[in-house]
Amino acid sequence: MRNRRRTEDDMHNRERWLISYADFITLLFGFFVVMYSVSSVNEGKYKVLSETLTGVFNAPQRSVEPITVGEHTSRPDAADSQIVAPPVAQAPANDADGEQGRSQALQSIANQFQDEFETLINQGLITVETSSEWIELSLQNSLLFGSGNAEPHYDAFPVVESIARILVGHDNAIRVEGFTDNQPIRTSAYPSNWELSAARAAAIVRLLAQNEVDPQRMAAIGYGQFQPVARNDTAEGRSRNRRVVLLISRDASIRGAVR
Rank of each mutant, 00 (worst) to 15 (best):
Q210H: 06
Y190S: 05
R217W: 13
A198F: 13
R200M: 09
P215N: 10
T187P: 10
E195W: 05
N193S: 04
A209I: 01
A199N: 01
D214K: 12
A209H: 08
A189I: 02
P184Y: 10
P215Q: 14
A198T: 02
E195S: 08
A219R: 15
I204T: 02
A199Q: 01
G222E: 15
P184W: 11
Q210V: 02
P184F: 12
I204P: 01
A202L: 06
Q216S: 13
Q210N: 07
V213A: 12
A202Y: 08
V213H: 08
W194C: 04
A203V: 00
I204N: 02
A189V: 07
W194H: 11
Y190H: 09
V205E: 12
I221G: 07
P184I: 07
R217V: 02
A220N: 09
Q210P: 00
P191T: 07
M218I: 10
V213L: 12
G222A: 06
A201I: 00
G222I: 06
A219G: 10
A209K: 03
A189F: 03
P184M: 06
Q216V: 05
A189D: 14
P191E: 11
W194R: 15
L208D: 03
R200I: 01
Y223G: 10
N211I: 02
E195I: 00
S188P: 04
P191K: 14
V205N: 10
I185P: 04
N193M: 03
A203K: 06
A203C: 03
I221N: 14
L208K: 10
A198L: 11
A189H: 12
I221R: 15
L208C: 05
R217H: 13
Y190K: 06
P184N: 09
G222M: 13
Y190Q: 02
A189S: 12
S188V: 03
D214L: 01
N211H: 12
P215S: 09
T187K: 13
A209N: 05
A202S: 06
L196S: 08
L207G: 00
I221Q: 15
